[in-house]
Design a protein around this nucleic acid. Structure first.
Length: 434
RNA sequence: UCCUCGGUAGCUCAAUCGGCAGAGCGGGUGGCUGUUAACCACUAGGUUCGAGGUUCAAGUCCUCGCCGAGGAGCCA
């Protein structure tokens, strides 16, 4: 019977069988007459044990000369072993070296600095830690899509190259677009999402967005992924329900499917287990009062600084909504508060443990007159918004939506120090490669 | 754009008051049949980011520049 090629993940189903696995050797320990080859194939990790007397002399000699990250095809018998972290080991019977590097692998077994690792991001992704983060990122995205699909949302992606501007002229990347002048990389899909909501009711966009702001913090990337649901006939209240439901579903599914990854990241899961609806709520007005009592010098009418966000989230054991900000610090499309014209019907969702804002949402202004007034107030070019105003001209409707930053959610759930580990190829103001 | 900190071996970092530039990991050689960031012995490895200055003497002090990190602002 020919020996079958299997993935490392499947090894427990092949105990006492002889199999072939293909992968990379990420570490090796060796005695004079026994080699321990640590192998990785993307599906899992396993130790291949090579005993001198059990293999051809040439194979044993070849193993001795392997460099880290050598690509191997290993034949061996699968053996249950309590000493192995995964419970199985491979007793090697034959070794085929598919590629043995001739240079030292630059990423060592001890710690490295962040700059060095980011320069080697293409190799760094091979590490167990980065693999765990990518797995959780995938779970976050998958659950988001699944949740929205199961709840009747239609995916209607927005363009990445746009002619008109989104929320304002600042922070946009521009490029030359044939003979049509400047085009811009989208910083939000929201205006398009509103058009899609008028067409199909419950929709969402999901894609990369771009901010050219020179932000230099652990919460910022110049390119990041955002999911933006937009729902016809949802008001501010419905909107927040949707947000807490979605975030809770994401955390629940990560806890359910990514226990190993969270453990590898040494993430304390107790705070995550508390992430169930309803989330805490506080109005902007009350939040300012609370911050004052906690020693902040924030002035009423200002947006929160990062310190304020951190102080505020430390008061709660799960995510907290901050509602109804002053109109003048928020975007033009947010709906005016029904009883206080100085406020808007919006919410920021702040993640606990100091992570801060992961969602920004609002009910949208559906009144044509007020919306035009707001565009003029903020000095925005009215002519850029003609199609957007059509949404108020033809069957205007109550609607709400929000944007959730995927990397910020991943960074929070994984307990990362910096958002740049939450995306495969981070783009920051000083980093364009790899 | 602003504030703070940093740049020393391939990597992570030491180097006291300005007084012989070091360790761990990685590399090389040898040893070891159960290692878990394996261990033990030996060994090679340096334009101390760059330019200028002070000094008998500069990794260390001064000036300028380059690069990076953290934070502020802005935001998801």
């Amino acid at each position: 019977m020919p020996v079958s090629c299997v993935q490392i993940r499947e090894l427990p189903q092949h105990i006492d069988e002889e199999v072939v696995i293909r992968g990379w050797m990420y570490n090796k320990r060796s005695s004079g007459k026994i080699h321990f080859l640590q192998l990785r194939d993307g599906s899992g990790f396993v130790q291949a044990v090579m005993v001198k007397n059990d293999v051809a002399e040439e194979d044993f000699e070849n193993a001795k000369n392997l460099w880290f990250e050598a690509c191997l095809e290993v034949t061996g018998k699968v053996r249950a072993d309590q000493r192995a972290p995964s419970g199985v080991e491979l007793s090697v019977t034959a070794l085929k070296v598919l590629h043995n590097p001739t240079e030292e692998y630059p990423i060592g077994k001890k710690e490295h600095g962040i700059d060095f690792l980011l320069d080697l991001r293409h190799l760094w992704l091979r590490s167990q830690r980065q693999h765990a983060i990518m797995k959780i990122r995938e779970q976050v995205i998958w659950t988001t899509r699944e949740y929205l699909r199961n709840n009747g949302f239609l995916l209607v992606d927005s363009p990445i190259i746009t002619g008109s501007i989104g929320e304002g002229a600042s922070g946009l990347f521009d490029l030359d677009y044939f003979d049509m002048g400047k085009a811009y990389l989208a910083q939000t899909g929201q205006l398009y999402a509103e058009a899609a909501a008028a067409a199909y009711g419950k929709i969402y966009t999901f894609g990369p967005t771009f901010r050219a702001e020179k932000s230099k913090t652990r919460r910022h990337l110049t390119e990041f992924w955002m999911v933006e649901p937009e729902v016809a006939f949802y008001d501010h209240e419905d909107n927040m329900h949707l947000q807490e439901d979605l975030v809770s579903a994401i955390v629940e599914q990560v806890l359910l499917h990514c226990g190993k990854e969270l453990a590898l990241l040494e993430r304390d899961v107790e705070p995550l287990k508390k992430v169930v609806p309803p989330f805490h709520r506080i109005t902007y007005d009350d939040a300012v009062k609370k911050l004052h009592s906690l020693g902040s010098d924030i002035r009423y009418g200002e947006d929160f600084g990062n310190d304020d966000e951190t102080i505020l989230t430390q008061q709660y054991d799960k995510p907290v909504f901050v509602e109804c900000y002053p109109k003048k610090v928020k975007a033009f499309y947010m709906k005016e508060h029904p009883t206080n014209p100085d406020l808007v019907l919006c919410d920021d969702l702040l993640a606990p443990e100091g992570y801060g804002e992961i969602i920004g949402g609002s009910q949208r202004e559906d009144d044509m007159e007020r919306l035009v007034a707001r565009i003029r107030e903020q000095g925005l070019p009215e002519e850029s918004y003609t199609w957007y105003l059509d949404l108020r001209r033809y069957g205007t409707f109550i609607h709400s939506g929000f944007g959730m930053g995927i990397e910020r959610v991943v960074a929070w759930i994984c307990g990362l120090q910096h958002i740049r580990e939450a995306i495969p190829w981070p783009r920051t103001i000083y980093r364009l490669n790899p």
